[in-house]
Design a protein around this nucleic acid. Sequence first.
DNA 1: TGAAGGTGACTGGTCTGACCAGTGGACTTT
DNA 2: AAAGTCCACTGGTCAGACCAGTCACCTTCA
Lengths: 257, 257
Amino acid sequence: MGEGAQFEQVRPVRLYQRIVEQIEGALAQGELKPGERLPSERELVTQFGASRSTVREALRVLESNGVVRSRPGDPNGPEILPFSTQGLTKQITRLTQVDEVGLGELISFRMILDGSANMLAARLRTQDELASMEATIEVMRETIDLGYEEFSEADVAFHDAIARVSRNSLIQVCNQVVRGVVLSLISDKISRSRNSKALMRQSLHHHEEVLEAIRAGDGPAAARISRRNLYDYYAGYLPKGEREPLLALLLDVKPVV
Amino acid sequence: MGEGAQFEQVRPVRLYQRIVEQIEGALAQGELKPGERLPSERELVTQFGASRSTVREALRVLESNGVVRSRPGDPNGPEILPFSTQGLTKQITRLTQVDEVGLGELISFRMILDGSANMLAARLRTQDELASMEATIEVMRETIDLGYEEFSEADVAFHDAIARVSRNSLIQVCNQVVRGVVLSLISDKISRSRNSKALMRQSLHHHEEVLEAIRAGDGPAAARISRRNLYDYYAGYLPKGEREPLLALLLDVKPVV
DNA sequence: TGAAGGTGACTGGTCTGACCAGTGGACTTT
DNA sequence: AAAGTCCACTGGTCAGACCAGTCACCTTCA
């Protein structure tokens, strides 16, 4: 357990880092809020007492971390962005590129997170929350005829509801991030036809199954069902030899026979 | 499900981004490997045909993502770093600062990941792997008298073994990252005495329990035990009112009575 | 011959000042 | 009041300069 590092690395601190720290600090302290604007680069130069090169290096770092966005010609200065998962996604994507992590691991990660979120939801839901979840799935039923975009929106709303009910947004954030990475990895193998109405119906059905388990307050069932759904959906993209770890997850809770 | 975004954002691509992409691409293609060196900034200026400011902005971004490291006076040029979890940690930390994620969520996240890793290990282990895991825990037993540093090292080795056996390094990476963030959040509340021998023994005992379940091939037990251990260890840092979601996780698999 | 010391060609970090192509608000014109 | 014009200001990029370090080489000395 426990680190134990008594001493910090004492590598030279560069000016641009100080600037980054100050701005990130102001954000952490709530002195800056998303939507607000930073002063212009030239104004920051005078405020920080550093050169424009230095200020710009700081802004580039913040920008690459998804904290701010500069746009040329914008007279209001760099914009402070709301939190986004962009940075997380970039890191996870990098993991896959360094070959530390493969598709199979991403999928089983999703099975674990999604299953856990649904299990928590089943255990922690209140009556009110159950009602609101049923409302979002009702929206899904209605949008299924309106087209993929609308359906997808309703789908996201459902998962947001799960996140709230499971009392753990971190799970949901990671889940969404990994989902995005998985989709980008298999995007070339996905045929256009996947957006067909039949598949939307299948997806809806899966969600209904999960919600049924949540309604019943049956955590293990909610976890098992959502994992199986994910497996059915994604395992096809995986070489047969690499599916064993995923199958091991499906045994997590004994299926009801 | 699925995105559906047909059109990409078409915001102006800045020069430094092109440079970042080229270098990251070369890394993804394996043309550059950790430990190797990039040409010096002035050399990159000629290779990319951009100004030094632009090249430097690119390097700062890469540096902030943990890809390279520049050191003044180093005649070999910027160093390409091996993959590290630094970037991931930064992102998760930011999540906690934006108040999207609290300590309770981090802890339950760990309970989920650690539990799942151990469950997978119990299900997927081979005889050889079991032997090597027992070897690492034997090392822990021996180092317990040598002091905290050595013990901690052996502890890491044990978890590395779990990661290998569970066939999922992503779980382990996230687990370690979140563990680091949790420790930094509660670091001020941790008394020095926590590194006492008694606590090392307790930790060792917890590991032995988990390994016992893995040896028996009992996935649910491995998950349940490791979750309970984490709960015992961390729940004290959480206000009583926020422990309910964690307790919900302990019910995941029925305890053996 | 071998070790100590000095030197200079590099490195990255920082600054200055300049130019460009856009943007958007203020101002003028209709 | 609506339409069009203009200009101050934005960020993006560049060239060139200086500094403080580092390290390899080379000289010098024992």
